[in-house]
Simulated scan of single mutants.
Amino acid sequence: MGDAVDELYGVFGLIRRPARVEGCSHCVGPDEDRRLLDRPLRSLPPEDLARYAAKALNTWGGAEEFRYFVPRLLECAAADAFGYPDPEIVFGKLVTAEWRTWVADERAAVEAFLRAWWAEALEDHPVRPGIATRLSCLATTGVGLDPFLSAWGRLATTAAIRHLREFVIDDVEWWPDPRLIVFWDRHGPGYRQVITWLTDGRLVAAVEAAFEGETRDDVLELLAEIHTALAPG
């Protein structure tokens, strides 16, 4: 994760610091951008950046200014350091900024950061923000979720199993039809990818395979709870 953050700052550090970040005169004070620009980006406190994080690309600044702030915005959102805005709002601004049209090095740095952030969750439990929030954040960026779900579905760590148990019990409503209950665009492709992953049998098979190879009683109990949620019959 540290390497991915460093790469973000290295790649986006080539973008010149804006002289000003203009905003809607009704929403942003005339000198409110000074707190964003008068210190090095990496040392910018989350509380100084939070208001911009909420208003960026809507009523404060455009895509070029946003690209300058991307490393710190993603670093803070990934740590749930803002309080408000929610991490999903910040990650979703990548789509508003049309990040898929950025130069190859910038796209690659963002993608590497997203992969590292997800891998971190699969190695540790608990994490903040939780894995349900991380998954919905990934969906808001427009990336395909299948590689992330496949990595989770390997259940290669106890952390991944614990996260899955919490997810299927706390973050999914199963009746009358499966529904995700955190911050999701239910019409987006990511939502459908997760529902399909939960219901098409792949995950049930992975849980059963993990159960066969497991000997620890506490982990077997977790797998049994997951299996009951996925295949109650």
Rank of each mutant, 00 (worst) to 15 (best):
M1F: 09
M1R: 10
M1K: 06
M1N: 07
A4W: 00
V5M: 10
V5I: 15
E7Y: 04
L8D: 01
L8S: 01
V11A: 04
F12K: 02
G13Y: 06
L14V: 12
L14F: 08
C24R: 13
S25I: 10
C27F: 09
P30Q: 15
P30L: 14
E32Y: 07
D33Q: 11
L36N: 01
L37N: 06
D38Q: 13
D38P: 02
R39F: 06
L41S: 02
R42W: 13
S43W: 11
P45H: 12
P46V: 03
E47P: 02
E47M: 10
D48H: 15
L49R: 03
R51N: 05
Y52L: 06
A53S: 13
A53L: 09
A53E: 01
A54D: 14
A56T: 05
L57M: 14
L57Q: 05
G61C: 05
G61Q: 00
G62T: 14
A63I: 07
R67F: 03
R67Q: 15
F69W: 03
R72I: 05
L73C: 11
C76E: 03
A77N: 05
A78K: 01
D80E: 13
A81N: 09
F82M: 04
Y84R: 07
P85T: 03
P85V: 01
P85I: 01
P87G: 05
V90Y: 00
V90G: 00
K93W: 02
L94G: 01
V95E: 08
T96E: 11
A97S: 11
R100E: 10
R100F: 07
T101R: 14
T101V: 11
E106M: 12
R107E: 06
A109I: 03
A109P: 00
L114Y: 04
L114I: 07
A116G: 11
W118S: 04
A121I: 04
A121W: 01
A121Q: 05
L122E: 03
H125C: 07
P129V: 08
A132P: 01
L135T: 02
L135H: 01
L135I: 12
C137Q: 02
T140L: 03
T141N: 04
V143K: 00
V143I: 10
G144C: 07
D146P: 06
D146L: 12
F148D: 00
S150C: 09
S150F: 09
A151V: 07
L155V: 03
A156E: 12
T158Y: 10
I161E: 00
R165E: 10
E166Y: 08
E166I: 08
F167L: 11
I169N: 13
D171G: 05
V172D: 06
V172Q: 06
D177N: 10
P178N: 13
R179S: 10
R179M: 11
L180I: 09
I181V: 10
I181S: 07
V182D: 10
D185T: 06
R186A: 12
G188T: 13
Y191F: 15
R192M: 08
Q193D: 14
V194M: 11
W197V: 07
W197F: 15
L198S: 01
T199Q: 09
D200M: 08
D200P: 06
D200C: 07
G201P: 13
G201M: 14
R202K: 13
L203H: 07
V204C: 14
A206V: 10
V207D: 04
D217T: 11
L220G: 12
L220W: 14
E221V: 10
E221I: 10
L222Y: 12
L223C: 06
L223F: 07
E225F: 08
T228F: 14
A229D: 09
L230S: 01
